[in-house]
């Protein structure tokens, strides 16, 4: 009976899809808080340590989900990173982040590099943060 309860509860937790944090080859993702509106995603390809923050874009700037999903980005984290054209040049042509980060809607993709690029140092820092959240 005990075993069934454990099995059932893991199934329910698994199905609910609530990911607190995850560190994989592809990158790091974690949820800052429940009202953040989504995950903090740190990409590692083609360069290490590029942060997309749902907390900033959804909670703080108040952008609705539809502004990006699913026309520009699919719901699955790191899906775009698997595309070979997930590079700065595509952003300059208005793809991915460049759809808004074009100098009109939001700051242009070829400016303020270290705003989104948190680098290897940022990646390591956020990895630690994600690990702490994982343990909770």
């Amino acid at each position: 009976m005990k075993r069934i309860i454990i099995l059932a509860s893991t199934l329910i937790l698994g199905l609910s899809g609530f990911v607190l944090s995850e560190i994989t080859e592809e990158g790091v993702k974690y949820q800052e808080s429940e009202e953040a509106g989504g995950l903090e995603i740190i990409y590692t390809k083609p360069v290490k340590g590029v942060l997309f923050s749902h907390k900033l874009h959804v909670k703080e700037l108040g952008l609705p989900c539809e502004s990006c999903h699913t026309a520009i980005f699919e719901m699955e984290a790191f899906k775009s990173q698997r595309n070979p054209d997930f590079i700065m040049d595509s952003l300059y042509k208005g793809k991915y982040c460049g759809a808004c980060h074009n100098g009109q809607t939001a700051f242009a993709s070829n400016t303020k590099c270290a705003t989104c690029h948190v680098g290897v140092k940022g990646l390591e820092r956020l990895k630690k943060k994600a690990q702490v959240l994982e343990k909770k």
């Binding site: 360069v47 340590g49 590029v50 270290a114 690029h117 680098g119 290897v120």
Partner: peptide
Amino acid sequence: VDRCIDCER
């Protein structure tokens, strides 16, 4: 220097 993104390649 402002182009550096600490990718550490």
